[in-house]
Design a protein around this nucleic acid. Structure first.
Lengths: 207, 207
DNA sequence: AATTAAATAGAGGGGCCTCTCTAAAACGGG
DNA sequence: CCCGTTTTAGAGAGGCCCCTCTATTTAATT
């Protein structure tokens, strides 16, 4: 009972990713996205009530895709992160760190987005649901880190910020150096991230 | 034999730093800088032929100030980095990593600039001299890392990218997490950076 | 065939931004 | 006191961007 859509939402988002990867988040203008897709600007506003809503969706779609794989990697193959984290927490940490690099290698344009912050995607102007999604993702990551933290050492384990550094921030910064200048990641980047994670977590009694 | 200047170049640069720290590099507009200083836009263009030249100067002044202290820290107090690096390379590496955090704590606004890349400061449009200054700084850092690398282990020392990760990238990413959300650095950030650097360099025979 | 909802299509207003251009002001030297 | 130079001062042209608004098209339903 209605005209079928001609432009899919994801096409606009894909175009936005491309633009941001090439020239930064500020290059995501409604006009540029419309032009890249071949649609009039009105069609973009039909999907997104404002530029901030488009930016929010671009950011959230990317981050959530990244996190999904990260959680899976932390769970080391099977479906339950807790079991794996308990069984071999250091191996799980290593797998998570490696995943950050592997995902970036597989999605170089999306990785380049991730190296910015949500603030660069106009987070201050996001609609409420977007803020909630971001908050939720943040919470789940914090939870996973806390669990890993506990699994690594009941008493004398490393603090949460140290674990975050090992399994997220350092792998990301390994990626940053190369992605920022448009270069491919070197072949041993995954290995460097994994080893660095283990080193940062200390040579403790983990496994 | 000429009218004395009323606005100093550094006042414009300071205003630009403030703007970028608050809202990102794109907030550095000629109009905004002029307004912040209380000058007409013409006066800004009298100092900087184009926006790209202003952005280049903001970036380079910040990076060069950062690097100066970093070289000094790597030299561990005295004037000659090589001697110190030879004498106690691991201590020098630790000092350099700590300096990254300490400098960021002392200059939070400038640190927030450093977390972007030169590309976000319109590097593609920089005038030639700016590009040369950037190149020179990059070269000197690479040299220092190579020296440190050699001092750490004549044969089996860690590779250059590993050393860079330890003494620059990881400290910076510790800073990033907090600066990006406008929070102060926690008290133990320097210690975390220093220890992480040592861990990443391995518990080798350094000292 | 008529109706209706969803979507495309694109012109244009208002605003900000970069940069140019002309005029005036402020100083030191002759 | 006047001249030359540097700098301030500010208006405004041109361009891009965000967003609004009004048609018009399209297809399923009645």
């Amino acid at each position: 009972m209605a005209r079928p859509p001609r432009y899919d939402v994801s096409r606009f988002l894909d175009a936005a990713v491309e633009l941001a990867a090439a020239s930064g988040p500020s290059a995501i203008t409604m006009a540029a996205v419309a032009k890249a897709v071949g649609a009039p600007s009105g069609s973009v506003y039909h999907r997104f009530p404002a530029r901030a809503a488009l930016l929010a969706e671009v950011w959230l779609r990317t981050v959530e895709d990244f996190q999904e794989g990260w959680f899976a990697a932390l769970g080391s193959g099977d479906g339950d992160p807790r079991a794996a984290a308990r069984g071999a927490p250091r191996a799980a940490a290593r797998a998570a760190a490696v995943h950050v690099v592997a995902w970036s290698r597989a999605h170089p344009r999306e990785a380049s987005l991730l190296l910015y912050g949500s603030a660069d995607f106009a987070r201050d102007d996001w609609p409420e649901p977007g803020l909630r999604r971001a908050e939720e993702g943040h919470r789940r990551v914090g939870e996973a880190v806390a669990e890993l933290c506990a699994a690594l050492g009941a008493e004398a384990g490393p603090a949460a910020d140290r674990v975050t550094l090992a399994v997220i921030d350092t792998p990301l910064t390994i990626v940053r150096r190369h992605v920022r200048r448009g270069q491919e990641l070197p072949a041993h980047a995954e290995e460097l991230a994994g080893e660095s994670a283990l080193l940062l977590l200390g040579e403790g009694p983990g496994v």
